[in-house]
């Protein structure tokens, strides 16, 4: 189910554009930031790494989040909008399997883009450093940035999709769902971004992650409760 759905959502031009924008922005941003810091810097390797890590971490994590929000909106609310929900719900899939399918459809591309984007950004940043300041060898990511860049996209993707399942009950169009999802998820993004900018260490990261995980669990439980055939069909009419 998730495989076919992913194929379908990537036929949407909006969805196809996001990974391209994300990659261009974070690679260009990473390259320019590194170049600027090395050209006008005078900073030591450790501070360079922390500053770059804060900025790049936020870009690498936040930008790919647009994708699960849009895919979830397209895959869940889009079914309603395009009237394809009833035949899908008439198949023998359980409510749980359907929800899992929707989660995977929205999360997998988002995570692939996030991690692919991370690899590209790392190559670009360190490539610029290699040519401009070979004495630094490796500036980003350090271990904390790497763990953050791996863990946070998963936590935020669950948050985005869970939120979108809840929103899908109210929203009637993909655009409306995407807008509402974006507005609701913005505070979470700012929260994560602040954590990075402030360069807070492992403890804050751990506490922040636990809070997001807790919110994820609550949202997932609400999503499971709301994502049932009777509720979906009754709301659709």
């Amino acid at each position: 189910m998730a495989q076919t759905e992913m194929r379908m959502v990537f036929k949407s031009r909006q969805v196809r554009m996001i990974p391209i924008i994300v990659v261009i922005m974070s690679v260009a941003f990473g390259g320019i930031m590194t170049w600027l810091m090395l050209s006008f810097g005078g900073i030591d390797a450790a501070l360079f790494s922390v500053t770059l890590g804060s900025i790049m971490g936020a870009v690498v994590i936040m930008l790919p989040l647009m994708l699960p929000i849009l895919i979830a909106a397209d895959s869940i609310v889009g079914e309603k909008e395009r009237h394809t929900l009833v035949p899908l719900l008439a198949t023998p899939l359980t409510d749980g399997e359907l929800l899992l399918g929707k989660f995977l459809t929205a999360m997998i591309p988002g995570l692939l883009v996030a991690y692919g984007n991370l690899v590209l950004a790392v190559l670009v940043v360190n490539g610029v450093v290699f040519f401009m300041a070979p004495q630094f060898l490796w500036v980003w990511p350090d271990l904390l940035s790497l763990v953050q860049a791996i863990i946070l996209p998963i936590l935020f993707a669950i948050l985005a999709v869970g939120l979108m399942v809840i929103i899908s009950g109210r929203a009637n169009t993909v655009y409306e769902a995407y807008q509402t999802g974006g507005i609701l998820i913005l505070p979470a993004m700012v929260f994560a971004y602040s954590g990075f900018l402030l360069g807070l260490g492992w403890l804050i990261f751990a506490i922040g992650s636990i809070i997001i995980l807790f919110v994820d669990i609550i949202l997932f439980r609400i999503a499971v409760r709301l994502f049932n055939r009777d509720a979906l069909i009754s709301r659709t009419g």
């Binding site: 076919t4 194929r7 379908m8 949407s12 009237h83 394809t84 009833v86 035949p87 008439a90």
Partner: peptide, 14 residues
Amino acid sequence: LLPEDGASTHYDRL
């Protein structure tokens, strides 16, 4: 099941 608005229930992207 053929739903009442069956004609409009296909995936146009497939």
